[in-house]
Design a protein around this nucleic acid. Sequence first.
DNA 1: ACCTGAACACCGTTCAAGT
DNA 2: ACCTGAACACCGTTCAAGT
Lengths: 196, 196
Amino acid sequence: MRGLARALGVEPMSLYHYAASRDEIVGALVDRVVEQIELPMPDEGWKAAIRSCAISAHRVLRRHPWACNPLMSGPRISPARLRMVDALLATFEAARLPPDLADLAYHAIDSHILGFTLWEAGYTRGMPALTGDDLTAFLERLGIDRYPHLKTHAEWHLGPHDGPRQDEFEFKLDLILDGVDQMRDRTPTQSDGPAR
Amino acid sequence: MRGLARALGVEPMSLYHYAASRDEIVGALVDRVVEQIELPMPDEGWKAAIRSCAISAHRVLRRHPWACNPLMSGPRISPARLRMVDALLATFEAARLPPDLADLAYHAIDSHILGFTLWEAGYTRGMPALTGDDLTAFLERLGIDRYPHLKTHAEWHLGPHDGPRQDEFEFKLDLILDGVDQMRDRTPTQSDGPAR
DNA sequence: ACCTGAACACCGTTCAAGT
DNA sequence: ACCTGAACACCGTTCAAGT
């Protein structure tokens, strides 16, 4: 509040003429972020549609990590958020997922988008570009020798990992999508035929 | 700080004789939480071991949701945390996962535990035991009719879901574990034989 | 060694008073 | 209508001073 007021060249209390509370302002800002997420395009198949929407959400939220916590805590009833939820559910429905599987899949995707992005933000913030020497010194200081497998893992990280690293968000996303896809094949829909 | 001091019947500044900062106290409390998580037992197979450790972590963290954010943001170098990370990596190593897959799997599990639990906490906090009538009124007020698929989904939630609901944490956890397992089978290890 | 009073630099927010 | 001064009830933290 005070910072925003200063940026606007105004006293903090003036803000309360335009917004009822800090939460209202944060909620509006979150909505501007969520608006930027590309909605799933149903004509490319449900998996590809969900996939590109999730990747878009991740890319957008990575630029605004502060928005993850407001989105996760409390019922975000912002229009953009509702629109996105509706579009995701529409995609599952068009794919003829049975409602209980659609529910599981939707929650899995939603929690992956928000949870992973927040986890990732904390992770990269915790590792502030430590170069090799600083990192080894850091590791020594906290008694890395008592954790041999962690040490091996850290040494592997420092070595030359061959080839481009797989994107971790997409890795986990595909595990979810492929798993749901397999369950969909095993659970026949009401019409009992493949979705067309 | 002030609340803790009041609970101890002491002035806030006295605390700084025992701890350097608020973060130090929070870190110590987080460690007491992480200590309660059951470590993976290697003799039951890597999948079952990781699975029961993750479920234990979820159960513990669900009782202390405030610990998720401190665990995610910043490098938690607490002993219990390091011990758990080391045990997870040891399990992947014993299963002869190639290091790049072990890295992906470990991050997927870690982000699932912390990210999902935090997501879940916000979700259940946002839905504070709304009974049917309150919820329908709430839905009407925010223009649910503009989101038809969300409306269908909400109505399904209100109806009688047949059978016991699958645990969502375990659902996503198994998607990760099974997916990693399949990738392990496709990627031969150095010794080129099945892990014994 | 252990505790505290006074103080500092922060928060979000209210309300009556200004123009 | 739009802004603000003064004030309130909060934070975490420091430091010199108490016992």
